[in-house]
Design a protein around this nucleic acid. Structure first.
Lengths: 222, 222
DNA sequence: CGTGCCGTAGTACCCCGGTACTACCCGCCC
DNA sequence: GGGCGGGTAGTACCGGGGTACTACGGCACG
């Protein structure tokens, strides 16, 4: 039995969901909420397995409510519903920690299957959205994660030189690199010079860019 | 009627797929292939709506075959099937241009629904994979796409200074910036100095890192 | 054994980058 | 009018970065 909290600002919409979910034995609507604040409170109180969350609501919207419910860590999983397939909503919802994203025009069996999947720990995305999501994903995935060949310039570096390049990418000066690697600054300069030459960079700045483009340094990683 | 090309190195597996797909009126298996090379050739020859592609095959694998079929641009959509939910396969398949990714242990109706969706231009992902994909996606999505506040240091920059910062992020020297912006190098230096001061960077290298971390420059964007 | 690659280290030289400070023009607003 | 922020521009100074070249110990490989 899967317990569900229905969140939508329109009473009629909530009624529809309740009718549908109560018509099958496997789901049980244990509560309703008309806006984000109420949703967060009821989620904490009722501990539903799944929260069926509308995005557009007056007051606190579904995204923020999702963020808080997920942050609360009560094991409730959030399935976000929206009328429009606006990209910002999808992105924001996923970053907020939603387990799924479906369109309101989904067929009843799709919705039920979605709830089942989410309750089961899986995730669901409306097919119409999946396509664009995959497109973006393919664009975002770091180059080295696929089957493409490694940049020959990178491959030409020795292990030491690669370490140096990473250090350059972190923004360290030659002096800092020397200190942290316990080397003389002369040695660092030699290494840096060879790195620049091998990757075809005219200065360390181009090397920093190269390092970022080739995912040698993590963003926001100091 | 959806035409399908079945690609798998195991004859029995192909037989199973053919039985299933031919048992419903909406799909029609118009060909089979036992490895990547044959798949590419038959896809070009038969122009199927959907290619049901196994990943692991002797010789050319399903990923490379997918890449080539998609690159051929014959409107054939590729639905990748695998026994294992290995991340590398998923990434590689999506980058190769696959329209979907399902596990072989999917129930028959799931497979049929997947083929239907793919033929329809949508995309599908096995629920078990969707979860991890969303996790990664949330991690990859540029920070500014959600509801988080913009870095106050960025907000303190004037429009001109932001342009300068982007230019720094591209690796341009002061001289190059001066030339492209039609400014004197002195002016550029003045701007750069103010930018460094405002974002708290000790030198332009830290500024480059800042620009990348705040997504002001696109990777691989010269 | 010699040859080459790698990592280490040094000297010498020059230039770009960054700082400090000043200066002028323009548009806006009190 | 006067003040102010933003954009432009200049001079002077200096330190770090990059280049060129040399050098040597260790280690592998033919």
């Amino acid at each position: 039995m899967t317990t569900v909290l229905v969140v939508d600002d329109q009473p009629l919409q909530r009624y529809g969901f309740r009718m549908l979910l109560d018509s099958v034995p496997e789901t049980d609507v244990i509560g309703e909420a008309a806006h984000g604040t109420e949703a967060v409170r009821k989620a904490a109180e009722l501990r539903p397995d799944v929260v069926l969350m509308d995005v557009r609501m007056p007051g606190m919207d579904g995204i923020e409510a999702t963020r808080r419910i997920v942050a609360a860590g009560d094991r409730s999983r959030v399935l976000v519903l929206t009328t429009f397939d606006l990209d910002e909503y999808v992105h924001a919802a996923l970053r907020a920690g939603a387990s799924g994203f479906l369109l309101k025009d989904a067929r009843p069996e799709e919705l039920l299957a979605g709830i089942r999947a989410v309750a089961n720990g899986d995730a669901v995305i409306a097919p119409a959205l999946t396509r664009r999501l995959l497109h973006e994903f393919a664009r975002l995935v770091p180059p080295r994660a696929d089957g493409s060949a490694e940049d020959p310039r990178l491959a030409s570096l020795t292990d030491r030189e690669r370490e140096i390049l990473v250090a350059i990418g972190k923004g360290w000066t030659n002096g800092e690199i020397a200190t942290r690697f316990i080397l003389s600054e002369s040695t660092v300069k030699t290494h840096v010079g060879r790195v620049l030459s091998k990757i075809g960079a005219r200065d360390r700045i181009q090397a920093v860019i190269f390092a970022y483009d080739h995912d040698l340094v993590r963003p926001h990683g100091g």
